[in-house]
Computed example of a mutant assay.
Amino acid sequence: MNANSPTHARDEPGTERLEKAVRAAETALIEYEIAVETFRVEVENFSRLHHQRLGPVYARLDELDAQIAEAVAARTGDPEDVRKAEEARGAVLPMPRVEELFFGWIDSDGMLPEAQAMLNEQPVQPPSRVRPSEEARKAYRDLVRKAHPDLVQDEAERTRREEFLVRVNKAYVEGDAAALAALDEEWEAGPLPEPLAELLRGEELYARLEWLARRKESLTEVAAELEQSAIGAMMKMAPDDPDALLEEIAEQLLGQVAERERELARLTETEQG
C-alpha cells in the first residue's frame, strides 16, 4: 500500500469500536423508550379506570360523610358540629370542575383521549384493564424495535416510521392485540426499508452518542415524573398486577361505604328513639 495514499475512514483507530458503541446505545435507548412508554400507558389507563370505576364509590362516601355529620349536628346542636356538617356537605357539592363545565371532554391536563377520538372520527374505546395483555405487550415491543425511526437516517423513511408508530401506539393504548397483529403483518408486507446509511465516522459518531445520551436524560425525567405522580406511586404498590390493585382498592372502598351506612343507621335510630 502506498504510504502517501489517504487512510480510509474504516481504518481509523477506534472507529470500529465507536460504531459498535453507537449501535449499542441506539438499541439501549429504544428498549428504554419502550419501557417508559409502557409505564406511561399503564399510568394513564390506571387513572382513567380508577375514575370510571371508583368515582361513584368516592361520591357515595362523600354523601355518607355529609349525612353522618348532619345527623351528629342535628343531635348535638354544637356550633362546631354544625360547621363540620356544612363543610362535609360542601365537599359533596363542589364548584364545577373544568371537565364538568366541558361535559367530560377536557380536564386540567387537556383533551381527554375519548374526546380526541371523537373529534378525529375514531371509535371511542376506553381501556378494559390497566395493563394490556402479554400478547399485546410483546407485539408492541417487537413492532417498536422493528420500526423505530432512530434506526434510519433517511428523512422520508423516518417520517414513514413515525406515522406507522402513531398507529402502533394507539392500538397498544387500547390493548388491541388483534390490531397490533395486523400492523405487524402490514409492516412485514410493506416496502422494505432502505439499507441503513453507513454510520458517520469520527466526530459525528461522538455527536450521535451525545444526542443519544441527551435523549435518555429526557426520558429519565419523564419516567421520574410518572413514578412520582399520585397514580404512579399507587401503582408501585403492585407492580406485577396493577389490575388486581384496582380491584383491591374498590373492595376497600366498598367496605368503607358499608361501615358508613351502619354508622348512619345507628345515628338515625338513636335520633328516632
Rank of each mutant, 00 (worst) to 15 (best):
Asn2Glu: 10
Ala3Arg: 09
Ser5His: 12
Ser5Gln: 10
Pro6Cys: 01
Glu12Tyr: 15
Glu12Trp: 14
Glu12Asn: 08
Gly14Val: 10
Glu16Asp: 00
Glu16Arg: 15
Glu19Lys: 02
Ala21Asp: 11
Leu29Cys: 09
Tyr32Gln: 11
Val36Glu: 04
Thr38Pro: 06
Arg40Lys: 13
Arg40Thr: 08
Val41Trp: 10
Asn45Lys: 00
Ser47Asp: 12
His51Phe: 10
Gln52Asp: 12
Leu54Ile: 04
Pro56Gly: 07
Pro56Trp: 07
Tyr58Asn: 14
Arg60Pro: 07
Arg60Phe: 01
Glu63Pro: 07
Ala66Asn: 15
Ala69Leu: 08
Ala69Cys: 07
Glu70Leu: 08
Ala71Trp: 06
Val72Leu: 13
Ala74Phe: 06
Thr76Ile: 01
Gly77Lys: 06
Gly77Phe: 03
Arg83Met: 04
Arg83Ile: 09
Ala85Pro: 01
Glu87Gly: 03
Arg89Asn: 02
Arg89Ile: 00
Arg89Cys: 00
Gly90Ala: 03
Ala91Ile: 03
Ala91Val: 07
Val92Ser: 05
Val92Arg: 15
Pro96Arg: 11
Pro96Met: 01
Glu99Tyr: 10
Asp109Ile: 06
Pro113Asn: 06
Pro113Ile: 05
Pro113Arg: 09
Ala115Tyr: 14
Gln116Pro: 01
Leu119Ile: 11
Leu119Pro: 09
Asn120Phe: 15
Pro123Tyr: 04
Val124Gln: 02
Pro126Cys: 02
Pro127Ile: 10
Arg129Leu: 02
Val130Thr: 10
Val130Arg: 08
Ser133Asp: 12
Tyr140Ala: 00
Tyr140Pro: 01
Asp142Tyr: 08
Arg145Asn: 05
Ala147Pro: 03
Ala147Tyr: 07
Pro149Ile: 04
Leu151Lys: 13
Gln153Tyr: 13
Arg158Tyr: 07
Arg167Trp: 09
Asn169Gly: 03
Ala171Trp: 01
Tyr172Pro: 06
Glu174Leu: 14
Gly175Gln: 02
Gly175Ala: 08
Asp176Lys: 02
Ala178Met: 05
Ala178Pro: 11
Ala178Leu: 09
Ala179Phe: 05
Asp184Thr: 15
Glu185Asp: 09
Glu185Val: 10
Glu186Ser: 06
Ala189Phe: 01
Ala189Lys: 03
Gly190Leu: 03
Gly190Ser: 02
Pro191Lys: 13
Ala197Trp: 06
Leu200Asn: 00
Gly202His: 09
Glu203Phe: 04
Glu204Leu: 12
Leu212Asn: 02
Ala213Asp: 14
Arg214Lys: 14
Arg215Tyr: 02
Lys216His: 02
Glu217Gln: 14
Glu217Tyr: 12
Thr220Ser: 14
Thr220Leu: 04
Ala223Ser: 05
Ala224Phe: 09
Ala224Ile: 14
Glu225Lys: 10
Leu226Ser: 07
Glu227His: 14
Glu227Gly: 12
Ala230Arg: 12
Ala230Cys: 05
Ile231Cys: 04
Ala233Asp: 07
Met235Glu: 00
Lys236Leu: 12
Asp240Phe: 09
Asp241Lys: 00
Pro242Asp: 02
Pro242Val: 13
Leu245Gly: 03
Leu246Gly: 00
Leu254Val: 11
Gln256Glu: 11
Val257Asn: 08
Glu261Ser: 10
Ala265Ser: 12
Thr268Tyr: 00
Glu269Gln: 11
